[in-house]
Deep mutational scan, measured.
Amino acid sequence: KYSDMIVAAIQAEKNRAGSSRQSIQKYIKSHYKVGENADSQIKLSIKRLVTTGVLKQTKGVGASGSFRLA
């Protein structure tokens, strides 16, 4: 599940300011076997996790910027 992968990526990075979408994508692609549409799936999952309150956006708008666990 992409949401689990995103949470794992943010936990692994341990950046106080949060993790960027690009760094999350890079982590997921190197640690998991994902399909061609992974980028758009990650983007959608990040937006969903922010609206449900699992992630907090520290910089930027939408799916860009930095995110950390709430």
Rank of each mutant, 00 (worst) to 15 (best):
I28F: 01
K26D: 12
G35C: 15
R21A: 14
K43Y: 14
K26F: 09
R16C: 15
T51L: 14
S40W: 13
Q25M: 15
V61F: 12
D39C: 14
Q22L: 11
I6F: 00
R21W: 15
S40V: 13
V7D: 01
L55C: 01
K26G: 06
G65L: 14
I10C: 05
L49M: 11
F67D: 02
D39P: 05
K59P: 07
A38D: 04
T58P: 04
Q22I: 09
V50A: 02
Q11P: 00
M5Y: 07
S66Q: 11
I10F: 00
V7H: 03
K29H: 08
R48Q: 10
A8R: 07
S64Y: 10
Q41M: 14
L44S: 08
R21D: 07
T51E: 14
E13S: 12
K59I: 08
G53F: 04
T51K: 14
S45V: 14
K33I: 11
T52V: 09
N15H: 08
A38K: 04
Y27P: 00
S19C: 14
K29L: 10
S3W: 06
T58R: 06
D4E: 13
V34T: 05
V61K: 13
L69A: 04
Q22S: 11
K43P: 03
K33T: 10
L44D: 13
I6N: 01
R48A: 10
Y27D: 01
L69M: 08
F67K: 02
S3E: 15
L69T: 04
Q57L: 10
K43T: 14
T51P: 00
S3T: 13
K59V: 08
G65V: 15
K43F: 14
I28R: 01
G35Q: 05
Q57D: 03
R21Q: 12
N37T: 06
N37E: 12
S40N: 11
V54E: 03
F67H: 03
I6S: 02
S30N: 08
D39T: 08
L44Q: 10
G35R: 04
A38S: 06
G60V: 06
I10L: 08
G60P: 06
I6H: 02
H31V: 06
A38N: 03
I10A: 02
Q57K: 11
G60L: 06
K33S: 10
S20A: 04
Y27W: 10
D4C: 15
K26L: 12
L49C: 04
S66D: 05
K1V: 09
Q41W: 13
I6Y: 00
Y27T: 01
L49P: 00
Q57S: 07
Y2C: 15
V34L: 06
I24C: 04
H31Y: 05
S23C: 09
Y2S: 01
L44V: 07
L55G: 00
G60C: 10
S3Y: 13
I28E: 15
V7S: 02
S19L: 11
A9K: 00
S23V: 05
V50T: 04
I6G: 01
D4V: 12
I10V: 12
A70Q: 06
Q22F: 08
I28L: 03
T52L: 14
T51M: 14
G18P: 03
E13M: 15
G53Y: 02
K56H: 10
A38E: 05
L44W: 08
R16N: 09
D4A: 11
